[in-house]
Each structure stands twice: as structure tokens, then as C-alpha cells.
Amino acid sequence: MKLHFNAVRANRGDWSLAAQGTFCEGMHLVSGDVGSGKSTLALMIAGLFSPTVGSIVSDGISSKMISMQFPEYHVTGLTVAEECRSWGLDSDPILSGINLNHKRDVAPLTLSRGELKRLHLACVLAKKYDLLLLDEPFSSLDAREKERLCEILSQRTGGITILFTHEQTCFPQVDHIWEIQQGELFDRGEMPEALTRWMHAPTLIKKIISSGKILKNISPSDLQEAVCRT
């Protein structure tokens, strides 16, 4: 499975984004500041936004899913249980897994934002997709849920998963890092070599690297392990 960006450019007024490269199977992190074009890139890959020039070609990808930043955009059910069923899922195990069984009969839009994000991600991650796009999956989640999501994503196998985020501390284990800077998508390469090329790495990661510690990956446990290692 592969996803090719062939001289892609998206223009919107004065703003533009250029992308070239290939996403192979594994967990990819696309980082970049707010407004850099992470969501636009995700929408282009999902086929919801057309590049102005160039093409995005899928190779061997038969199923894909995009999880948008705002979970409200995905809601179709009138109750929490119905929302699970709208994804073709049995609501009982899904809601037990995210501790929302007691809210099964309430309207999804009456949940707190973090609870709604939890529900949405549980539905998305319950299925396997060849290509999974997660746009800011950590926003609105509390610290416990962020850690839980990192563990689930770190265990994900098969297919291409692309994580678009400006999160600063909580990441799953990733295979490849990309970065959007000044209107261009840069391939920082495979882990762990990508870490030295990651220009806008979060302060904590930069600090650990500059202290001479060897970082194998960027999940919370990798960071702690690197710091504890002498």
C-alpha cells in the first residue's frame, strides 16, 4: 500500500501548500503550526479538497477514513448508542470501553467536547482501514485519554495511518515524520533519524535530544525511558 503525492499544490488566495513524496505502510506524523495546512492536506488525501495542480495517487488502498478535528461534523445519531450503530458497531462494547455506558441514551451533542471526541475516536478505531487520517485526534481529550489513545495507536498494525497534529507532549510511537513549513511539506524521514531533522520538534523532545540522550521514539514511555537511561 502506498500513497503518492505527485507535484501537488493547493492554492487558496495568497496561501499555498506544496507536497511531494510517498507515504508507505506505518504510522506517519505530520506536524506543523496552526494554519500551516495540515487539515487541508488531510482533506486532499481524503478526496474532499482538490489540489490546484498535481495529483494524489493511491496504490493498493481499498478503504479509507478521515477523522476530522471537530467531532460534531461526524455526528448522525440522535443518541450516543445510535451514533455507535450508525458506524455499524455494537454500542455495548464500544461504550463500556470508553466509560460512557451511562450516557447511552443522551444526545451526542449534549456530551462534553472531550466525551464526544472519545466516542468518535472509539467508533473510528473500532474498524480497520487501509488508510486512516486522524486530524488533531488529541484536541479536547484529557491527559488520561491522550495516553490511552497513544497506546491504542502505537499497537495499530497494517495500513497507512497519518496523524496530523500540533500536540506538544503526547504522541504514539511513529515510523515516519513529515513537517509543513512555509507552505511546503517536508519529508523528515524514518524514525529515529527523523528526530534530528525535525525542525519544529516540541520543546521537550528538543531538550531531551540536546542533553545527549538517545531517543528511540516519541511516545511518553520512550521519552521517560530515554531520560532514565544513563
Binding site: K146, T169, L223, Q224, V227
Partner: peptide, 13 residues
């Protein structure tokens, strides 16, 4: 002992 403890405090370098 919880995930609410700042990761940067756990990773003091």
C-alpha cells in the same frame, strides 16, 4: 501517579 502529572516534569533532563 496519574497521567495528569506534567510529562516534562517526569522527564527532567
Amino acid at each position: 501517579q496519574t497521567p495528569f502529572y506534567p510529562l516534562s516534569w517526569r522527564c527532567e533532563v
